[in-house]
């Protein structure tokens, strides 16, 4: 079931001098099994929007419908909020700061235990999740604080996916990683997505957007100003430069070549390999 926002407004610190309308009349559908990326300026409301989906923040007015569970301003009375959070995993920015247990395995099995799973089963789930994120068995009994930055982040993500959420929300999951670490992380999410999970990712990295996203939602000043396919972001220079989005170099190259007589379909350009393939196709036509 898709996630549907209707007429959702969210105000921080209402009725105080600091009152701030962070989301304004959001109407949006996030498709089931999509890899949806949220883009926009710092402060545009991306993180606020994402946190409505598992009711960490609840709407000031309007609602969001997640797998049939309706989150609105009365959600605190809702009994199935636990059910909702089981189905929607949220990974914050720099999730490695949230590690706390003595060992990697204990940290990862904390989530399922909290949801009432038996100790034994929680450990089995934790091992599966660690295996999926690429943490080898010899690290299971280590303190999470002894691991490298990239490993820590994998462990933190494993902690979220132990419950096999149907929807996984990721807030800038590659920020601060080196290029290699960032690529590996994206491959991991792609794998999780292919296993049938809806992924909602907040990102500034347009290379990742055109490479992995199925859909893009653009936010500006608390409003959804565009929902589109990744390549469509870069069709109108006025739009993306105003949003301070950087055009990926593969797209810039394809456009330059098109200005000089090529006919490359931008939707086919997702990375260097696919760009080169399109160039090869054009060359054959000559």
């Amino acid at each position: 079931m898709p996630i549907t926002f209707s007429h959702l407004n969210y105000v921080y610190s209402p009725k105080t001098p600091l009152e701030y309308g962070a989301l304004k009349d959001i109407n949006l559908e996030i498709k089931d099994n999509s890899f949806t990326m949220l883009v926009g300026h710092t402060g545009s409301g991306k993180s606020t929007l994402a946190q409505q989906i598992n009711a960490l923040l609840t709407p000031t007015s309007g609602e969001v419908n997640v797998n049939g569970i309706i989150v609105d301003k009365n959600v605190k009375k809702l009994k199935n909020i636990k059910e909702l959070r089981k189905g929607v995993g949220l990974v914050f920015q720099f999730p490695e700061y949230q590690l706390f247990e003595e060992t990697v395995l204990k940290d990862v099995s904390f989530g399922p235990k909290n949801f009432g799973v038996s100790n034994e089963e929680a450990i089995t789930l934790a091992k599966e999740a660690l295996n999926l994120v690429g943490i080898s068995e010899d690290l299971f009994e280590k303190s999470p604080f002894e691991l490298s930055g990239g490993q820590k982040r994998r462990v933190a993500i494993a902690g979220i996916i132990t419950l096999k959420p149907k929807v996984l929300i990721l807030d800038e999951p590659t920020a601060g990683l080196d290029p290699q670490g960032s690529r590996e992380m994206m491959k991991l999410f792609s794998k999780i997505h292919e296993s049938g999970t809806t992924i909602i990712m907040i990102t500034h990295d347009m290379d990742n957007v055109i490479r992995y996203a199925s859909d893009v939602v653009v936010l500006s000043k608390g409003e959804v100003i565009k929902t589109c396919k990744p390549y469509e972001l870069f069709l109108d220079e006025n739009v993306f430069s105003k949003l301070s989005i950087e055009e990926p170099l593969v797209i810039t190259m394809a456009k330059r070549l098109n200005q000089n007589g090529y006919h490359i379909a931008l939707e086919e350009v997702r990375d260097i390999d696919s760009l080169a393939f399109q160039i090869q196709k054009e060359k054959k036509h000559e």
């Binding site: 290029p179 170099l249 080169a276 160039i279 090869q280």
Partner: peptide, 20 residues
């Protein structure tokens, strides 16, 4: 040593490998 290569160097490499 797991370092990145700039875009234009990578594109050059891939194009040549495709025979362009």
């Amino acid at each position: 040593i797991k370092l990145d290569i700039p875009f234009s160097y990578k594109l050059n490499e891939v194009l040549n490998s495709l025979g362009i």
